[in-house]
Design a protein around this nucleic acid. Sequence first.
DNA 1: CTCTCCTTGCTAGCGCTGCTAGATACGGGA
DNA 2: TCCCGTATCTAGCAGCGCTAGCAAGGAGAG
Lengths: 190, 190
Amino acid sequence: MSIQARRARERAERERLIVTAARELAESEGWDAVTTRRLAEEIEYSQPVLYSHFKGKDAIMAAVAVEGFADLADELRAARGAVADPRKALAAVGAAYALFAERRPALYDAMFTHAVDLPFATAEAPPALREAFGELLETVRPLVRDDDLETLTETFWSGLHGLVTLMRNGRLRHADHERRLALLISRFSG
Amino acid sequence: MSIQARRARERAERERLIVTAARELAESEGWDAVTTRRLAEEIEYSQPVLYSHFKGKDAIMAAVAVEGFADLADELRAARGAVADPRKALAAVGAAYALFAERRPALYDAMFTHAVDLPFATAEAPPALREAFGELLETVRPLVRDDDLETLTETFWSGLHGLVTLMRNGRLRHADHERRLALLISRFSG
DNA sequence: CTCTCCTTGCTAGCGCTGCTAGATACGGGA
DNA sequence: TCCCGTATCTAGCAGCGCTAGCAAGGAGAG
């Protein structure tokens, strides 16, 4: 029994190793550099080992994305907890969100641009995803009057997501980033 | 002289053929189906011909994206022109934007998800891109007091873009799409 | 302690991708 | 009619995600 336990443990460790390697490689050289051959070399195993852990490359990226959502949730929670006033909390969380996307573009891409088949707005969504959205939800809650909390949060989130993605693709003037962010937050503070 | 003119004309026609084929193939079967071999077969020429017109596949996608921006500009202009009241115009343009993204997802992807190296918020941006943004700008203009027209337009645009992209990737509950759109517009109408 | 079996990871290769070098055929100008 | 430049094609390269089938290792039975 304990032999199987050890094997299961080692397997789990190697799975974490794969996800971590994929994430670090993507963050340092971009997702184009994350090929199955390169990834296999990085973890010092052969290619087919990857497929004994994940269905395919997409599944590895999805696993990285889930990690990303956990990180995002952490950062949003920290930002929200640091400020007492609800309006300032909204601003802090919005800024934290934008900063996350700016500092970890590859991770953000995995979370939103790739990994489309990750279940999200359903009951089967991984806990990390629900948690990240939950942080936004709790930030918006004190500011909403009616019962449209979820809808309002989704809309605010869309605003943030639009800002950071258009920004990253050079669609917006780089200089006015802070002003756009402040403007978005002000429109959702009332 | 006229021989060269004819040749140049034929060349231009074939270039249009390539872009149109790429666009139709992407819209009917998705961008994954748009391979250089498939595209060559579609236009009834060999693969290398594509490279005598465009630097690579990305350049073809960028050309499709520019066409997309022209289409988007047309639809936004029509929506804006159909309504006199500025607030209703904002709603109409916002709805037209969302409808464009919903009805032509492959085209929207080419414009925003792919074709990242397309110059946008600079002087070198293709006219179609400036025109599409200009439509949003003119829609927002009557509603703005201060001199933050560009920043406000960019922020509103980000909101729309965020809504449609998160929506398309299953990140938002499908049912409340209209309410989110209305909410975004209301926040930018005041 | 030895033998057997099963698990585990490897080598090799398939069909595809974007892209290009070199050969070929075609058509205008002398 | 011949020549030459251009335009186009055939064939192939390196790399991709993924997998079939083989070899080696350790666990369990006698």
